[in-house]
Computed example of a mutant assay.
Amino acid sequence: MAGHKKKSLTIRYIIAFLLLLIMVFPYLYMVLNSFADWSQVDRKLIPTSFTLHSYEWLLSGGQSAEPRPWIRAFFNSLIVSTGSTVLMMVTGVVVAYALAKLQFRGRNFLNNAILFQMFFPAIILLVPTFLIIQRLGMYDSYWGMILPKALSLWAVFMYTNFFRAIPDTFIEAAKLDGASDWQIIFRIILPMSKSITIVVFLFLFMERWTELLWDMIVVKSDNMLTLNVLLSQMFGPYGGYPGPMYAASVILTVPIIILFLFFAKQFKEGMQFTLK
């Protein structure tokens, strides 16, 4: 009996390892080919000769005589992604608190409207949003990239469900002590929501970090280019260079991987709540 259980457990471990390998191998393949000699890129399943040629070619501007603003583009992406994520989280917390804990006329209608709006693709608002930003004089600026991404209905939905699980007694006790709604949100509700906040932060930051279409439309000058836009411009004429393309993909994923590894424990706790 014990031998049968041990054999069954071994089979499960083998199956889990194979599934993990299937999921991880595409990324591993990309990393290996980003360091592979160009003569082996996409020609061997696992390259045997490695070099930094792809990264050197990429960071030197490829075949262009003018160096590309990689460092500036990286910090542009960091500023835009961080600013947008912080605004989305703040607006998400405030709106979710109102929907979950405040009583006001039209609350159910507003909640249903938010859920209904989540089914619409964001691209349908692309043109009117661009026209508004242009008329406000925010074209080719940080504000033009950040403000249109200042609200996430998904963040509102996630926070609303979490806040509803927090007992109202905490809020009633705080109001008896004279706390305002803003104090309740940022001193009581938000500290109790660390796990779900990490999940929301990681997903929102990842979504904004990988944004391409909006930044491509609203940015004109080289100094305002984000990393995604710079890479897309570069690989239009250089699509026949797979090694540097793999290197560029690795560069884009590194910040996301670092964040996930740093917040792995909190992310796991938050995901356990969302799956309940």
Rank of each mutant, 00 (worst) to 15 (best):
M192D: 05
P121Y: 12
D215T: 06
L99Q: 00
T253R: 06
P69S: 09
F120D: 10
W214Q: 03
L231H: 01
S221Q: 08
L259Y: 09
V156T: 06
P128R: 02
I196T: 02
P121F: 08
G92T: 02
L151D: 04
A65Q: 14
L78E: 01
Y238C: 11
F75K: 01
V41P: 01
D215G: 10
I185K: 06
A122P: 04
M1Y: 15
I14A: 14
M271P: 00
E66P: 01
P242Q: 09
R208P: 04
F116Y: 14
E172D: 13
F157R: 00
R208Y: 10
L32Y: 10
V156S: 05
S141R: 05
L227K: 02
K220G: 07
A98D: 05
M1D: 15
G178T: 06
V200C: 03
V90T: 02
I146Q: 00
N223C: 08
D215M: 12
D181K: 15
S49W: 10
S195H: 06
Y246W: 08
A165H: 05
L19S: 14
A113F: 11
F74K: 06
L110Q: 04
Y241Q: 13
M158V: 11
L9Q: 13
A174R: 00
E269I: 07
R208E: 11
I188R: 09
T51G: 07
G106M: 10
L126D: 07
T51H: 11
P237M: 10
T10S: 15
R43L: 14
L110Y: 07
V24N: 03
K276Y: 06
I123D: 13
R164G: 00
G62T: 05
P242V: 09
T197V: 02
Y13S: 12
G243S: 11
M245P: 08
K149C: 10
I258A: 09
L45S: 08
V200S: 00
H4T: 15
Y97C: 02
D177R: 08
L225P: 04
P128H: 01
L259C: 12
T91N: 15
L45M: 15
I132N: 00
F157L: 07
N228H: 07
Q183I: 13
G61Q: 03
F75T: 09
M30I: 14
Q103N: 14
I132Y: 05
S152N: 05
L125M: 13
F163P: 00
V93R: 10
I257P: 02
T10D: 14
S39K: 12
